[in-house]
Amino acid sequence: MARNRTSLKDAHASVKELIAEKVQYLVPMTIIFIVCYIGLTVFAGFAKDLMGMRIVGSVNLGFALIALNYLLSWVLAIVYGRIAAGKFDPLAARAAMEISGRGILR
């Protein structure tokens, strides 16, 4: 029983570490997509002339920013997948083992 309690303590520590990792990556990533997307809608609402500035041919800044937002979402999705698999999953797996009380090989 004592061992179980220790490993649960370890699990809490691991999850704390995991949360810190997640905060470190997810907070900036969330800020990036919210600022880019809500910023776009603010521009669309209040800066119509700026959005009409020509970029390539008849394509204006607004459409260019929309295209960039598509790209950004896809890039963020891939980056998140990579970070989660590389950094979050091992920590989560360790914590899961500690919770089930099997401990980890030291």
């Binding site: 809608t41 669309a44 609402g45 209040f46 119509k48 008849s58 204006n60």
Partner: peptide, 16 residues
């Protein structure tokens, strides 16, 4: 090709 042809109120864009 400009914004605002459908959503006239700027705050509606943000709400969306």
């Amino acid at each position: 090709l400009l914004p605002g042809n459908y959503l006239k109120n700027p705050f509606d864009q943000i709400s969306l």
